[in-house]
Design a protein around this nucleic acid. Structure first.
Lengths: 144, 144
DNA sequence: AATCAAATTTGTAATTATTACAATTATATA
DNA sequence: TATATAATTGTAATAATTACAAATTTGATT
């Protein structure tokens, strides 16, 4: 299981106790850059872990977020998406197909604001919305 | 009804047909800078419009967004928030009390990204999360 | 004013994501 | 091994949102 080594490392790194299920969830996130929802993670795993419960997936993801091991993306009004890439980057979501892509950004672009005021800021997120290449092309086809 | 004049103007400006309900919803947004959810808008209005249906509020808000007359804020994993302030600005949400504040930002901070790639970007949102002054103070009190 | 079509509102039911919770199972430690 | 603690599981509850059909309103045309 070379693949799962990273997952175990990540869990250790953030002080999260190991379990078969948690390793599987983290491993899924580390190998699927699709910013999946909890349900998607569950569907990707329950065949190989037949006893897996959806609640466990929710629990694991919430735990990971609490420890800072993964990021919660609230770009979609339908569900929360998760991302194991914890380096600063922005996200783009297509309003047609709902897919989410990573968008590289310059460091320092996020955290700087004019005045922090009295707010204690712990996270910053930059989200773009619009149409991905495929969906944009298709919609043009409908018009032309 | 001096107050509602702005609401009517806003609806006209964005080519939205008028109705009592739509004017009321827009008026609510223009006078409540709390980034309310659909449910909050409904609760703020149904006493003065006894026949108001929650579906109507949802329909009106979706319509406003489609026409660009209000902005949809997907900062909260629980529900969508709405904002009649369509000038570029960022948002902050307190992770304890869930309140949302406006955060002023420099123009041009949002739309610029390194390379647009093949994505057609139509919106950009900058979200901060953390703890508001009140909640931050309270949590410190618990520790000290 | 009467008629008709189109648009809007309403109320209810359905859907879906997420959480609550209690029972079961696994883990770690004495 | 016994026991306490933590994690998992399954089901039920909650809550936001949407679907949809019936009723109402609006606007245009005569």
């Amino acid at each position: 299981m070379t693949i799962q080594t990273n997952a175990i490392d990540r869990l250790h790194e953030f002080g999260i106790k190991l379990s078969l299920q948690r390793i599987a969830v983290m491993n899924y996130l580390l190998n699927n850059y699709t910013h999946p929802a909890a349900d998607t993670v569950f569907n990707g795993l329950y065949r190989s872990i037949p006893t897996l419960s959806k609640t466990t997936v929710y629990n694991a993801l919430k735990l990971f977020v609490k420890h800072g091991a993964v990021i919660e993306i609230t770009i979609d009004d339908k569900n929360v998406r998760y991302d194991a890439d914890i380096m600063q980057h922005a996200h783009f979501q297509c309003k047609t197909c709902n897919c989410i892509y990573d968008v590289p950004i310059k460091k320092s672009k996020l955290m700087m604001i004019k005045k922090t005021g009295n707010l204690k800021i712990t996270e910053s997120h930059l989200y773009y919305k619009g149409y991905c290449e495929k969906c944009n092309k298709n919609s043009l086809n409908n018009i032309l």
